[in-house]
Design a protein around this nucleic acid. Sequence first.
DNA 1: GTGAAAGCGCTAACAT
DNA 2: ATGTTAGCGCTTTCAC
Lengths: 339, 339
Amino acid sequence: MQQKKKAVTIQNVAKTSGVSVSTVSRVLNAKGDVALDTQNKIQDVIEQLGYTSNLAARSMRSRKMNLIGLIMPDIGHPFAIEVMKGVNRAIAESEYDLLVYTTGDVRKFETASHEQKYVSLLNNSITDGVILVAPAAAEFASDAPIVSIDPAVVNPSYPSIHATNYQGAMDAMRYLLGLGHRRIGFISGRPELESSIRRMKGYHDALEQAGLSVDDSLIAAGDYTTETAVICTRSLLALENPPTAIFAANDQSAIGVLQVANEMGLKIPDDLSVVGFDNIPEAAHLNLTTVDQFIAEMAYTATNKLLSLINGDELDEQITKMQTQLVIRGSCRHLVNAA
Amino acid sequence: MQQKKKAVTIQNVAKTSGVSVSTVSRVLNAKGDVALDTQNKIQDVIEQLGYTSNLAARSMRSRKMNLIGLIMPDIGHPFAIEVMKGVNRAIAESEYDLLVYTTGDVRKFETASHEQKYVSLLNNSITDGVILVAPAAAEFASDAPIVSIDPAVVNPSYPSIHATNYQGAMDAMRYLLGLGHRRIGFISGRPELESSIRRMKGYHDALEQAGLSVDDSLIAAGDYTTETAVICTRSLLALENPPTAIFAANDQSAIGVLQVANEMGLKIPDDLSVVGFDNIPEAAHLNLTTVDQFIAEMAYTATNKLLSLINGDELDEQITKMQTQLVIRGSCRHLVNAA
DNA sequence: GTGAAAGCGCTAACAT
DNA sequence: ATGTTAGCGCTTTCAC
């Protein structure tokens, strides 16, 4: 049967131990100025009643919940999973617990207007700080610190961690160019994201540096999803003069390329070279060789940055005003064929 | 620079729009009994000030936050990731948002005493219900409903979803026996968990039904981790009369078996047959053929069960008192060798 | 060393 | 249609 036990409050504890709420509160917060006898008595009652303080009530009165938040639209997504792994590792080493907030779906999340909502939801009430993944807003009203991973805006007012998308894309392209490819297709990411813009620029610049002109027909508008990448790949390969290699702006897109290649019976890399971007191990079952998990690494770094921000003396106004730009090299890899 | 913008409260909105807090509260909760003029004015101010209601304060006064909780010790773990995928899918289809609570580490989580803490933390304050994964306690004091996945206890007072661990283990064993194996090693799971006990029993009973006696030296004490499974496998294979097949109690353990087999140059399944249990796609990069993702499926089912419990009329006392035993068949698979 | 009382931001009667 | 009031469970002065 479903339990009907009502939650135990500090009032119950106080009454049962025959003291006032304030005294109970004192031992709960280890203020130390309570007689040892009373302290023990109260502890016993707490144990016996199974009392646990009400998060909501507590956070209304005091800062410092030893809780950080991670805000993400969709935690089933491989990218999100990598982020969580990184954050998880960092908080496992800390005294903090983690609250991951998600709507389960990007569509329920929507744009910048909603971001503020989720930030205040957590940061102005129950968490000591939040980590934002690819936020679109440049500024947030928040009582507690914010750190972001891969912000979609250029000059955010909060510290951020981001990958060298440009450099990574250049590397990917140089790799393909080094293999002798001259017609390289590109499946772009979501056009509104900085990461996508930078990867696109890397594609452009690498071609130019190699003395090649950019052929717009080789650029397909993707959105970081496998589904769209499938469509993109089909149209790229249906060109009169199709590319001999495809650079996908992220792993999900690369998977789409592989799927189509499979369908069409193309051998990789013999018939088509494919390069992804991100190194998500979830993509591993699709014949990939993972170089490293840099997304998780970014998340790990972000979390530690946030924790130090939370614990950092409030006095040090300078530091909180600094824009932290921690840079981790994005890497790329070549997708090889397997059985 | 880090923003210093203080959080906007309902008071500020009321003052700015020249009305009382209750009126603002009314439009916030769409009570409808507010003049359209006032309504618009207030909406404008809310927009302009960027007001968002304080989660903590709101949840102190009213039930129904449209928020469910998922409590797990470690969200980096493949099992946990599968659970989240399932829950995520369910809430994406719903109007609810999700809050995943984690300590990042099983060691910080500890035993049953802490479980209650996390349950009340969420369920007695901010969530409308929680999903518990493999809880060790049989009962919880909680204001909101609880649904559990794979509880470690036999007769929990809350609804639970669990796999047919016994049947699944039998299937796995029958498969190996069907291949002609007579010496089958078993790497057990964490002995305190029901799932583990049932899988072990399946191992025993399958052998007996096949008219074989149980050789205790073929049973290695694992704990659902790859690391321990590696040690177990080494000792099993070092036996005078080693097994020709190994049934690992979960995928993580199966991965450990594969690692050792690799090290020792053993061909699978020619030299050694290996069967895992769980079907976590994360194990896929290790030459596995995934049958289905039943953990995610369980989590999906659990979430929907919780949601209906939350939305179910309070009147229907009968239903909340029912023990929901939803059963999903655990499946097994044969691990084949690859390159 | 301990209790009484004031509020944190909000919602829900109860008034008007 | 709107304002007033009383708490929700907790922490924190301020008394004693």
